[in-house]
Simulated scan of single mutants.
Amino acid sequence: MPPTESSTSAGTGPGPVGGHVQPAPESGAGCEDTLDLRLPGELLSLLSPDDTEDGGAHPREDLLDEPAHWRAAATPLGSFRLIPVSVERDLSLISGWMNDPAVAAFWELSGPEPVTGTHLRAQLDGDGRSIPCLGVLDGVPMSYFEIYRADLDPLARHYPARPHDTGIHLLIGGVADRGRGVGTALLRAAAGLILDHRPRCARVVAEPDLRNTPSVSAFLSAGFRFSAEVDLPGKRAALMLRERTLARLL
């Protein structure tokens, strides 16, 4: 799920701050996507028995420790929560965001609602390694997140992944919510929630387009560090890490 973001200030523009570029349907085989990766035996051997059903080869549905039950986080902008998406409730809102031309250029999910619906349902009907969420600030849905197991994602082929690495993609929906450091505040809050509620996760991972200086800057301001440049399908990315051991210092 290679992410990019638009070029507005502070990495808080309409495109995803570490967001998702969906290959067009006609792209055919060879495209990588979070839900396409089969778990190799050597990776399964690193996972604790709790990560698989009966210790077998099929991951549990709570691979992300149930974001629906995560508490709210205090931010300078207000109280922030991650709420898992309901297609019936949220499709119109998210599809509207995806049809913003500035967003569509990066997420490639513009078009009628079923385009976005298919993308959401692929995660919701999957094995739990990626969960689409609304970012809700003081009770108002204003952003879209994908929280995913980076160690179980095609991204793991491109960097030295560790068990329970958790990835983050962010899309800020409304024009009024872009800029002013909003993306930085949301990234810091979401990464903090992941580390607080996923005790086995030592690192939050992101991979914004290396050319997208505002996005990289937003991650740095949110306490992520630049780790490496990685070649991903469709882009060269900045691998960004927020590590539990440094979280209290940044």
Rank of each mutant, 00 (worst) to 15 (best):
P76Q: 02
A176K: 04
A10S: 07
A161Y: 03
Y144W: 06
A10V: 04
E207F: 07
T116K: 00
D165W: 12
L44V: 08
N212T: 12
L250S: 06
L77D: 09
A218S: 08
M98Y: 08
L250R: 11
G135Q: 10
A228N: 12
R38D: 10
L37N: 03
P141D: 10
G30P: 05
V85W: 01
S79K: 09
P2R: 10
G13H: 06
V136T: 11
R236C: 11
L44H: 00
D209K: 03
L77F: 12
T8G: 09
L43S: 13
R203N: 14
A10K: 09
H158S: 08
G19D: 01
A247G: 00
V140G: 05
C133E: 02
M1S: 13
R203E: 09
H164T: 10
H69C: 13
S7P: 07
G30E: 05
D165I: 05
V85H: 03
L170Q: 15
G179P: 01
G19M: 03
T245N: 11
H197P: 14
A150Q: 04
D65N: 15
R162K: 15
S7M: 12
P233N: 04
R38F: 08
D127G: 10
G234P: 13
G18Y: 01
L210F: 04
L171I: 12
D54P: 01
G56W: 08
P14S: 13
A238C: 05
T166H: 01
R81T: 15
L186R: 00
E66W: 08
E207V: 12
P3A: 15
L39Q: 05
M1A: 13
C133S: 07
S217R: 10
Q22V: 14
A202P: 00
P59I: 11
L137G: 02
L35G: 04
C201I: 02
E5Q: 13
P2N: 15
A222L: 12
A104R: 08
L47H: 08
R178S: 10
Y144R: 05
L152T: 11
V230Q: 07
L63V: 14
L93D: 00
P59N: 10
L250E: 11
P214Q: 00
L195H: 11
D100Y: 03
H20V: 15
A190Y: 00
L82H: 00
A10I: 02
L47Y: 15
R89L: 02
G179H: 11
P112R: 03
L91F: 03
P112N: 02
L195M: 10
T34N: 14
S45G: 14
P233Q: 13
N99A: 12
G11K: 00
V204S: 10
T75I: 06
S7A: 13
